[in-house]
Amino acid sequence: MRLGLAVAGLMLVAACGGNQAILVAAGTTLVDSGFVEEVAGDFTAQTGTDVDVIGEATAQVLALARSGSVDVTITHAPDLEAEFEADGLASRSATVFTSRFVIAGPPGVELEARSAVTAFQEIASRQGPFVGREDGSGTSLVESAIWQLAEVDAPAQSWYLSTGQGMGLTLQVASERSAFVLAELGTFLSTGELALVDSDVDDPALQNSYRAMSVVGTESSTAADSFVGWLVSADGRAAIERANVEIFDRPDVYRTPAPLRD
């Protein structure tokens, strides 16, 4: 639906012969909260280039990019991104901001563990319950990586619930089932009515980097390249900081990286 609207929007723009527009596909975590649109709004205001945004699971975003259906991707799955770049499909790419993953659980149930792996092991020994996404999203890829390190075959366990759906619904299920969940911070903060608390496990393994890539050879590749460049520019960084406050009422959910990696 969103894709349909976005495509319809693009066709409209093309038909009017107006400014070049770009289609950005980002992980649902970034789109559901409205964060990417907020940032992109500044880009449009500054450059006159319209930006349409669709949200999909990371795997789906990269599949769309491979088929040339989108101009820019913003994802958080380092392995898949590296593969995409290695295939020479990215014209320009940069890590544009980072956040962290939250291990959240029912209020009143404190985890003793202080690392991601031991926290997952502790959850396994308590028999969860744990709600996973298993939807090809960056979050679910990180989650399965941690389970692997913890040497737990979680999806095979009866206490492991898998939604196959986006972060928002998965958080709802975890909340209502009094279960643990690995959630991306932004979505965790922007999903309402959750009876879940952040276990405050702080671990580099829970670091969440978002990488923007412009796709080679699309019709709007010039504008796409300049969008990715803008994101890491001073203007882009300022827009990201402003969007944080605008949406989450705090400046530090999606942090721009201190040393620029390109």
């Binding site: 999909e56 699971a57 795997a59 789906q60 599949a63 709600v131 298993e134 939807d135 090809g136 619930l161 898998s162 939604t163 196959g164 759906q165 619904l169 709802q172 299920v173």
Partner: peptide, 26 residues
């Protein structure tokens, strides 16, 4: 059913929500 069921594997996953899930993931 997606809204109230949540498409939980083995618990509340039915054909329609499965189709949504699988097509979302291409």
């Amino acid at each position: 059913v997606l809204i109230v069921g949540g498409n939980i594997s083995g618990e509340t996953r039915v054909l329609t929500t499965l189709i949504v899930q699988e097509s979302r993931q291409a």
